[in-house]
């Protein structure tokens, strides 16, 4: 493909990234660096602030005033609260699956692929994309949740009872290293498309058209990184290495979720997430 075509593809995917994902890397960066003109997130750093803040976890774009005058919900025992927060975060994850699906459908050629293959590409790619999407929402001290309305500290997440305390720490470790790459929104969009269009997922029927699509996106990504980050010639290679880390991270995450399902009697996994995680690894 001509470089003009590759640039057009980058622009198209970047537009789709902005259209489908409510908290982009640039928005998250603004919130984390305090450049949102007084509209700073609610900080959850202990059980008390969790009780107060959990109300917002599943609320899309709650107005600031409403947030400030909110009435605290009745307190729940610590164990119950952890499960209830986990349930709310699951709903957000299910929404994110929808967002990633819409983004995937906007990749030129994706919807023309075999329907069975589209399902497999999403099943295997969606948690990898969501994990990567989480990285810009994190810094070494904590993570944004609920469309940037909440900042939950890393120390607090580590202090939760087992196995909940083990869920986020590997994501922080990945995020801190990933954020060093300093990708921008358009780089992220192309990287997500590369992840989704992986031709080596188990069970794919027609691999060739998937690999062809991925090859074009890879060319667009390589061109873009060379243009936007000329001072970092190794960036493309470094980014591709992250795909291996992501597979391990997702495999560990799925194992932990299966363990949770066994250990927590009250835990109910969202049907969409159940579908995705069943027989995944």
């Amino acid at each position: 493909p001509e470089s003009a075509d590759l640039r057009a593809l980058s622009r198209q995917l970047c537009l789709s990234y902005h259209r489908h994902f409510p908290l982009t890397k640039s928005k998250a960066k603004a919130i984390l660096s305090g450049k949102t003109h007084g509209n700073s997130p609610f900080v959850i750093h202990d059980m008390k602030s969790l009780t107060a803040g959990q109300y917002f976890i599943n609320c899309r774009q709650l107005p600031v005033l409403e947030r400030q005058r909110s009435v605290l919900p009745p307190e729940e025992p610590a164990g119950e609260l952890e499960l209830s927060v986990f349930r709310r975060l699951q709903f957000r994850s299910a929404e994110a699956v929808q967002e990633v699906t819409e983004f995937a459908k906007s990749i030129p050629g994706f919807t023309e692929l075999d329907m069975n293959d589209q399902v497999i590409l999403l099943k295997y790619g969606v948690i990898e994309v969501m994990t990567t999407m989480l990285a810009p929402l994190m810094n070494k001290d904590g993570t944004l949740f609920a469309y940037g309305q909440i900042f939950m500290t890393r120390e607090f997440l580590k202090s939760l009872r087992k196995p909940f305390c083990e869920m986020m720490e590997p994501k922080f470790e990945f995020a801190v290293k990933f954020n060093v790459l300093e990708l921008d929104d358009s780089d992220m969009a192309l990287f997500f498309a590369v992840i989704i269009l992986s031709g080596d997922r188990p069970g794919l029927v027609n691999v060739k058209p998937i690999e062809d699509l991925q090859e074009t996106v890879l060319l667009a990504l390589e061109l873009q990184l060379k243009t936007i980050h000329p001072d970092c010639p190794q960036l493309f290679a470094k980014l591709l290495q992250k795909m291996t880390d992501l597979r391990q991270l997702v495999a560990d995450h799925v194992r932990l979720i299966h363990l949770l399902k066994k250990q927590e009697v009250q835990m109910c996994l969202h049907p969409l997430l159940q579908e995705i995680m069943r027989d995944l690894y």
């Binding site: 699956v97 929808q98 329907m115 099943k123 995705i276 069943r278």
Partner: peptide, 21 residues
């Protein structure tokens, strides 16, 4: 595969109306 991934399948086919999750 379609039977095991009904919601995912629906999300892929249905682009306009919101899917009841």
């Amino acid at each position: 595969l379609k039977e095991k991934h009904k919601i995912l399948h629906r999300l892929l086919q249905n682009s306009t109306s919101p899917v009841d999750l």
